[in-house]
Design a protein around this nucleic acid. Structure first.
Length: 904
RNA sequence: GGUCGCAUAGCUCAGUUGGUUAGAGCGCCUGCCUCACAUGCAGGAGGUCCCUGGUUCGAGUCCAGGUGCGACCACCA
């Protein structure tokens, strides 16, 4: 143990312990085990994904919860898995094919899908292996994939049920179409960039049919005019009243189109006249329906203008735009081109500009599903943390639109619908039909697949075996918490709630913790394209998984984004190293053990009765198990740390828990207790030594357990090295500490608090007056009948403040010598005779006096205001009075010393 | 256009229901390789708590308005 290295080496321990945990089966959730349980499902990362900093934070938080509840005696299930990520995965494999000069069409559907599966088996799910490096305590025996047989079964069941309920339907709609991915997208998958993109608003003249002036329309997508079948104006707009019902010429296309009146048109925007292109704009489609304007599709799915585009056929949509504008200009019909911020939507997968496109797609009618999901928030079945997301969730639910679920891809769950061409029947079935049940005709299955999220929204119960009635479902559904990023509230969280009620009659989780977004040092969102996201595996290699975990948890407050750069990980690394060295120190002094289970040890105080003078005789004389003041103090502080940690974790205030542990371990344990323990450990009193060792053991054992959910590897490594009788084979399943009020000790906290004040003040004097650490000082303590206590404190003062001698004073105060006075323990006078000259001391005392007088003045001012004394609560006033009294006393002492010094 | 969030030390941020002298980490300055730890120890400097007004005995904290950032939503072509 004494040969432990001076710095902690995570690489040497992490893998070893992770393997041991797996071998021990600690992460496996057993549905047959009785008792409380805690369930959480992982937000399934894309099977194509690699770990980034967002995952690190998200999964560390989940792991903290899982490990905390596991240690707290619960039957914990943390369900892991991956998402098949339709477009993303298909893109990856198509890219591979492209490098071989092939397209998916060269392979054909079946072979292509087989190829994707092959890729998935060989290369997919890297991210889960990376999560193990982080220490994630998932139940890996249950790893799921959204295209597993069981989950596919759930998807099929849900589709059929919704169809039977009339909630799934097929229709011609304007949807967001990605001309590169060649598929429809959901509204949420077509993303706008903030403030729009740079573009133009073109003003185009449409002459009247009779050759009159006609009107001018404004558009940001001039190429769509090729598909115009009308022009709309506001019915109230007098400028155009004479044209309503007439026709105007559509330039470039040589056809006339009607002018209609529609309230949707804003008189004040642009020219107040809108070209209507029903096949290429959602609003225009609606207006077209109202006024009988036929949709005219002018574009191939890949964005190339089709034959309906006349002379522009064969041009890409953006090339066509340029040509159209040029031709209009040439004909003198382009009246104006003004710069304009255009609200462009792009494909969330490939960033291609999305085209509003009229096509036949499958939809889910969402409004009926939204009701229970809204009520869940109202009645408290669902809690969003932080709460401010409630509004976002509610607004989305209240204005919900139907969900386009069909995708023109090959990779995904095939839509379970068959069409009978001879009879025109549509068959939706739980099992694959072979022929039309109505007319016996031949069938062909819908070629499309379902949106990836159509499987994700079932994740909390599909992973547990639904639609079968499984033991896992009965035991672990609904889950307790969901930890995820706020950017998928709509994609995933809201839809899961709806599915939970629709198919399980229950909210799938109680608490949804929306974790921070991880940004880089400049506040930019971390992204692959910016290259500003460090590879977490590099960070782990350099600093250790525990260091990374602790750092990100510390940095992420509830509801705020977190800025991370790699150097910040030093916070966690240094902390790990600090703990490591505290353990080295302890192990060096603990001997081989085993030490008795610390819990039953008496506190010393009880065994020695109450001391009326307020100071116990110290347990050095207590015979074996009695504890000293410092021991009592740290054990009391430990209770505070346990309470703070538990409270913070219970409220999902992870960073508060982390900082409570940081302060306790670094501040209380290392800075003070270990130093306070040295006089005994290096002394010759065997009884005192035993007491300190017992305390040290308790504190380390409890602290490591408290910290384990945050830093699992380090804590296991040290815990296993402790010379104690371990109750469990691994700290993973050791009981999480609970507060024991019997160990709370206000008296010890007050006294060590005083000691800390005194020591700090003495150190301060030394530093300020430039007294070398080696120069011995003499300290006089006005004990005022507390002599015993002071004697007990003496070795601590000597050790911590590097004081040569401690002298007790009776009623007499040191006078006639240069002295500095500090607070704490009544009064402490530091003898500076022969160390520094009187002028320096005087300067210091005057400075102190100045401060005291300033404070006293402000307190007195407060106390002299009748309003304050009359209206403030009594305890607040009392505090102020006490403060004034203390300040007056201190002022008197300082003045006395100064008068002596001035005479000298 | 709507909704929401943020503004505190040079930097990144804590500050729970209004109540002693507003805190931490990093950075900076001074002194220390003191027998667990220089990934460390001790001490220190550094703040108009964005602005204005209001409520209150008392405001970093509550209210109103303003300014500046940021996020989300939205059919303004």
């Amino acid at each position: 143990m004494a040969d432990l290295p001076k710095t902690y080496d995570p690489a040497a321990t992490e893998e070893r312990w992770y393997d041991a945990w797996l071998a021990g089966g600690y992460f496996h959730a057993d549905e047959t085990r009785e008792g409380e349980r805690f369930a959480i499902v992982i937000p399934p990362p894309n099977v194509t994904g690699v770990l980034h900093m967002g995952h690190i934070l998200n999964n560390t938080l989940q792991d903290v919860l899982a490990r905390f509840h596991r240690m707290d005696g619960k039957n914990v299930l943390w369900m892991p898995g991956t998402d098949h990520a339709g477009i993303a995965t298909q893109n990856v494999v198509e890219k591979h094919l492209a490098s071989e000069g092939l397209t998916r069409h060269d392979l054909g559907r079946e072979a292509f899908v087989a190829r994707v599966w092959q890729w998935k088996e060989e290369k997919g799910g890297v991210i889960l292996r990376q999560l193990k490096r982080l220490g994630a305590s998932c139940d890996w025996e249950r790893e799921r994939f959204t295209m597993d047989e069981g989950l596919s079964h759930a998807v099929r069941e849900v589709f059929v049920r919704l169809y039977e309920q009339g909630l799934v339907y097929r229709g011609q709609r304007i949807i967001h179409w990605c001309p590169r991915c060649l598929t429809a997208l959901a509204d949420e998958e077509a993303v706008t960039s903030e403030g729009g993109e740079t573009g133009s608003l073109w003003h185009i003249r449409y002459p009247a049919e009779d050759g009159g002036p006609g009107l001018t329309v404004a558009t940001t997508r001039p190429e769509t005019m090729l598909g115009d079948t009308g022009v709309a104006v506001n019915p109230e707009d007098e400028r155009y009243a004479h044209l309503i019902g007439k026709r105007v010429q559509l330039p470039l296309m040589g056809r006339a189109i009607p002018v209609v009146a529609d309230a949707l048109v804003d008189k004040d925007f642009g020219t107040g006249a809108v070209k209507v292109t029903p096949a290429h704009d959602a609003n225009d489609f609606e207006m077209g329906q109202r006024h009988g304007l036929e949709p005219l599709c002018i574009m191939e799915p890949n964005g190339i203008i089709n034959a309906a585009g006349g002379a522009y056929a064969g041009l890409d949509r953006f090339a066509a735009r340029k040509r159209v504008v040029a031709d209009l200009e040439a004909q003198g019909l382009l009246e104006k081109t003004e710069p304009y911020r255009v609200p462009v939507r792009r494909c969330y997968r490939c960033d291609t500009v999305v085209e509003p496109y009229l096509s036949l797609q499958w939809f889910v009618k969402m409004a009926p599903l939204a009701g229970p999901a809204l009520r869940a928030l109202e009645d408290g079945s669902l809690r969003l943390i932080p709460e401010r997301w409630n509004g976002v969730y509610r607004h989305w639910m209240e204005t919900i639109r139907d969900w386009c679920i069909s995708r023109q891809l090959w990779w995904g769950h095939r839509i379970p619908v068959w069409y009978c061409d001879s009879g025109g029947h549509e068959i939706v079935s739980r099992t694959d039909p072979t022929s039309c049940p109505h007319c016996g005709g031949a069938l062909r299955q819908d070629p499309d697949v379902l949106d990836t999220w159509f499987s994700s929204w079932l994740w909390p119960f599909s992973t547990m075996g639904w639609p079968e009635d499984t033991a896992t479902l009965r035991r672990f559904y609904p889950t307790d918490a969901l930890v995820t990023a706020a950017d998928i509230i709509f994609f995933w969280v809201a839809r899961m709630v709806m599915a939970g009620y629709a198919f399980m009659d229950q909210c799938p989780f109680r608490d949804v913790y929306l974790n921070s977004i991880v940004r880089d040092g400049q506040g930019r969102k971390m992204s692959k394209s910016l290259g500003n996201s460090p590879d977490p595996l590099d960070v782990i290699a350099q600093y250790g998984a525990d260091a990374l975990r602790f750092t990100v948890v510390s940095l992420a407050p509830v509801g705020q984004d977190v800025r991370y750069d790699i150097e910040k990980t030093e916070l966690g690394r240094n902390f790990a190293n600090k703990i490591w060295n505290a353990a080295r120190f302890a192990l060096m002094h603990l001997g081989d053990g085993p030490h008795p289970d610390p819990a039953p040890l008496a506190r010393g105080r009880e065994s020695e009765g109450t001391a009326q003078d307020g100071f116990d005789s110290l347990p050095r004389s207590g015979g074996g198990l009695g504890r000293g003041l410092a021991d009592r103090w740290i054990l009391s502080r430990l209770q505070g740390a346990i309470e703070e940690t538990r409270t913070a974790l219970g409220a999902y205030r992870f960073n508060d828990a982390a900082s409570a542990l940081y302060r306790f371990i670094w501040g209380d344990v290392c800075d003070w207790y270990l130093e306070l323990s040295k006089p005994a450990l290096y002394g010759s009193d065997e009884a005192a030594k035993r007491a300190v060792r017992a305390t040290l053991t308790t504190v380390l054992d409890q602290t490591l357990r408290l910290l384990h959910p945050f830093m699992p590897f380090l804590t296991e490594e040290i815990w296993q090295a402790l010379p104690i009788a371990r109750p469990t084979a691994s700290i993973c399943i050791a009981p999480y500490p609970t507060v024991d009020d019997a160990w709370r000790d206000a008296d010890a906290e007050a006294r060590i608090g005083q000691l800390i004040d005194a020591v700090t003040s003495i150190r301060n004097i030394r530093a300020e007056l430039g007294i070398a650490p080696t120069t011995p000082l003499t300290v006089h303590i006005a004990a005022d009948g507390q002599g015993e206590h002071v004697q007990a404190i003496e070795p601590f003062i000597k050790a911590l403040a590097r004081v040569g001698a401690v002298e007790l004073l009776g009623n007499e105060r040191p006078s006639g010598e240069p002295s500095s006075v500090v607070a704490g323990l009544g009064e402490v006078f530091v003898s500076l005779r022969g160390v520094v000259d009187a002028a320096q001391v005087r300067e210091r005392l005057e400075k102190d006096l100045g401060k005291v007088e300033k404070d006293l003045k402000s307190v007195d001012a407060k106390l002299s205001r009748p309003d304050f004394v009359d209206k403030a609560p009594a305890d607040i006033v009392e505090k102020e009075r006490a403060k004034a009294g203390a300040l007056r006393e201190r002022r008197a002492t300082l003045q006395k010393h100064l008068s002596v010094l001035r005479q000298a």
